[in-house]
Computed example of a mutant assay.
Amino acid sequence: MAEGKIIKALSGFYYVLSGGEVFQCRGRGVFRKHKITPLVGDEVVFQAENKTDGYIMEIRERKNELIRPPIANIDQAILVFSAVQPDFSPGLLDRFLVLIEAKDIRPIIVISKMDLTDHKTKPIVEKYANDYRSIGYEVIETSAVTKDGVALLLPYLEGCTSVFAGQSGVGKSSLLNALRPDLQLKTNDISTHLGRGKHTTRHVELLEIGGGLVADTPGFSSLEFNEIEAEQLPLCFPEFRERAHECKFRGCTHIAEPKCAVKAALEAGEIQSYRYEHYLSFMEEIKERKPRY
């Protein structure tokens, strides 16, 4: 028996990195029986007589996992959002951040396509960037075309397993190509008819970049809070979390309770109103969700 890490899953095959070599494996039927699907990022035990005919025998316990994209054992999430084309969306970014915070994965915000901003759009994007920095998030402004800011990402990647995620068309593959030009990942332009990105990445794969492993993932434009409960949501907003102990009531939802430190900070301008509005919207969405049985 050998041990390794799944670095790619494609068409029912799992490609396991072990000892510097990659083995093509299938999952055993026992996984289907127990409704466990091997994921990219899984640490596994496998057996293989050669490099193209192996079987995954065991999946080690995961420290975390994501559903969309399907990946496990992530150290950090590089959330790529374009400044324009498509326009920077704080609402969608906050949705990503909540899902990442709920999994206790470190988020790093990357704003791409800064070279396409003009005198109107650049100040707007930079204000948002500074808002998120003030919360405590790392924010890196980049351009895959001019290479500005790209090198700033490399120290974050070293020794970590990172997932690149974001809306379709924001330039994730272009950014990865800028970090490692020999990858030559397929990229595509924004669909002018639909106004959103075309999917260019069709599967999840871990790539060796900057001394770490980076997952290039299929782009997607909608996420749901299926695994997050109402009482967990306030903990997914760092600026709420750090003030919660000052609220009068333990377990304060920061909505209708009196003497709420979060609402006081909101009124004082210490918390961005759009972040609070997104919080209220997400809370309503979670409360209206059909119960799971």
Rank of each mutant, 00 (worst) to 15 (best):
G20V: 13
Y14W: 09
E205K: 03
A83R: 01
D87M: 12
I111K: 04
R292W: 09
L183P: 00
E246N: 09
R68G: 00
Q167R: 07
L179K: 06
A77D: 02
F225A: 01
E21H: 11
L207R: 05
T161Y: 01
T253R: 15
A77L: 10
F237Y: 15
V145K: 15
K35F: 12
E231R: 12
I271F: 03
D94G: 01
L175A: 14
T253A: 15
E267G: 11
V40H: 02
N50Y: 08
S89G: 02
R196I: 08
Q47T: 12
E288I: 02
R60C: 00
H278K: 07
L157F: 05
T200K: 01
I140T: 11
E138G: 03
F96I: 11
T37I: 12
R180E: 15
Y132K: 02
L179D: 05
F225W: 02
A2N: 15
L157Y: 03
E285N: 07
I67G: 01
V84G: 04
L79Q: 03
F31E: 04
K127E: 14
H278N: 15
C252S: 11
A151S: 15
L233N: 00
K290Y: 12
F96C: 12
M114W: 07
N73G: 06
G136H: 12
I286W: 05
R275T: 10
Y293W: 04
H245V: 06
K103T: 06
V145Q: 12
G166Q: 06
I100F: 10
L152W: 01
Y279N: 11
V110S: 03
D216H: 13
K103A: 14
K122D: 10
N73Y: 03
E270K: 15
F96Q: 07
D131N: 09
K33C: 00
